[in-house]
Design a protein around this nucleic acid. Sequence first.
DNA 1: CTCTATATATGCAACTTGCATATATAGAGT
DNA 2: ACTCTATATATGCAAGTTGCATATATAGAG
Lengths: 151, 151
Amino acid sequence: MPRNRCGRHGNSPCSCGMGNIYRFVEPVVLFLLKTKGHAHGYELARDMKDCSLTDAAIDLGGLYRVLQRLEVEALVASEWDTSGSGPARRVYSITSAGEYRLREWVAVIGNMSRSMDAFLRRARASDIEPLPDSPEADVAGSDATAADDRK
Amino acid sequence: MPRNRCGRHGNSPCSCGMGNIYRFVEPVVLFLLKTKGHAHGYELARDMKDCSLTDAAIDLGGLYRVLQRLEVEALVASEWDTSGSGPARRVYSITSAGEYRLREWVAVIGNMSRSMDAFLRRARASDIEPLPDSPEADVAGSDATAADDRK
DNA sequence: CTCTATATATGCAACTTGCATATATAGAGT
DNA sequence: ACTCTATATATGCAAGTTGCATATATAGAG
């Protein structure tokens, strides 16, 4: 069941209900590998918070699976890095097929962004205002308000 | 497997790989019901083409299931319309809970649109250009080109 | 009588997701 | 030694979602 409230963004509507859809994670992974040169999974999970396409928290398990699939598709390549301390890291880099895919993603996301802007303009033209973030949301002791009594 | 090419949009990258995700269909359905007042499923499927958030073709089966779930969640209400010719139509209208949900969606989509714009700016700043639509795409006899030899 | 458009709905295999869990290295603190 | 935490990768699995095919039915056109 899709919910526009996840409880992790105060009481405000968020896109967590969109899920950690790998199709949203994939372009960000490819972008980070392209700009950083190389990175391992755990590192990507942190960097991703700054440029993810949804509000959803990154699921590490899901991220590793995305990376595995990208490697099967030959869009990224990896090798183990056992230097440094701590557990070994699997370090990924983007392939030329991956760079091509990234450019496809930029086109797709550009289209979606335009569709969403058009939708938002229509909504505004029909006086449908976005639900503003609730300021009292971050208060810990916030009971369910009248506006929140949905399942 | 996600693909940025579906074969239904010439040879250009599209968001069909994003799927007919009901989370993208739901806000459009709510918007159309809000602005039209009421509509039946088959009608919504057609109207949706003009303001859908992805390039994906509407799957009628999926749309009817979205409508069923929205009704269970009391975001829409329906009744049969047996007037007029042809098969009976189930006519839907939006409830006040549905209008509230729609405003949540407008907020969520606003956030996503901003995230996507930020992503696109970053990509552009890194000289990652969107893959342009292939002009030869609509030509029927187009063989797989060198750029297209991915599975 | 057949074909097509309209209209709603279900069946199902394959795929995706969120969450829990397993495994292991290493530093900091007690 | 022992515990705790952070780092790091990975899998298991139930529940949910998707795309496509299919079933059903009304009515107009030819």
